[in-house]
Amino acid sequence: MANLNSKNKNELFSKIMEICARNSLIITIISLLFAISFPIVFSSQYLINIAINCLMYSVLAISLNLITGFMGITSLGHAGFMGVGAYTAAILSTRYGVNFIFTSIAATIVASLFGILLGLPTLRIKGRYLAIVTLGFGEIMRIIELNWVSLTRGPMGISGIPRMSLFGVAFSKPIHKYYVILVLLIITVYIVRSLMNSRIGRAFSSIRDDEIAADAMGINVFKYKIIGFAISSGLAGLAGAYYAHYMGFIDPNAFTFDESILILSMTIMGGMASIPGSIIGASFLSILPEALRAVADYRQIVYGLLLAVIMVFKPSGLLGGYNLKHIKQRFNFEQSTKGVDNHV
């Protein structure tokens, strides 16, 4: 009986996914409208700050999903790249007075260089061994940030990071900061989406599915892993730069192993290789601690319990295992009259 129930539930879920896939354009437009109007409708600073968190973590979760979900490389040190970006932006803006636009570009480039540097010697390692190396990387970054006092001011952190500004107009209100991160998220989604629909994206998925077969197809596995790592860490660096300007203060405690695990939880809970999944996962895990303020002392327990329950009932993550593009293609194929050559 229980079995039958779960089967029905799965079918229901598949049905919902099919409807979503067929109406993806409308859903995208509605979510965009919702995101744009959110700070206008809810003017409370508290709510806007939570929304900013959701969007920032969405960027991080999508960037991690690029290597973990789409390429099958588990990284336990993603906060390390975020930290590299944040420190790059903080140092450039406090010492050299560089504008937010340029610090965020610089942070992206520096973080992706770190990604390449880490990738070159280590990407030949696979699976859990690579995960341990990325864990080590995250810790090394944190310890460097903690101890290189002349550059990073160590445990004192860097304060007084200038606000974001564009053409001399400072973005001081939360609502402005909200729109900045919304634009960054849209850029991130656009980059990752078009990447995954390109030749490079197909190479990424083939590496995840079967490295040896990918190699035999003439795909340069190592090159594509480096490309994926560079883009993923670059986007994390971008989120880091935003974080630095948004908070105005950073210290090494913001980029710990816990942070890496939080980002990984968001990615896994939202669903591997799913961009909407990552956004939902990131938003859910950003809102949850705030929503649980009511149960104060038991917050962490409820939080952990909820996470465990979700993973038990939906081990592949909320949207994991549903490739909307495939569902759409299959639907179109079934609709088109069979035997006609129009889909070649």
Partner: peptide, 19 residues
């Protein structure tokens, strides 16, 4: 049979002609 399990049949074929 090392096909790419999470990719569609068509995507598998397209990958065959990757070079």
């Amino acid at each position: 049979r090392q096909v790419f399990p999470q990719m569609t049949v068509r995507e598998n074929l397209e990958l065959g002609a990757y070079t």
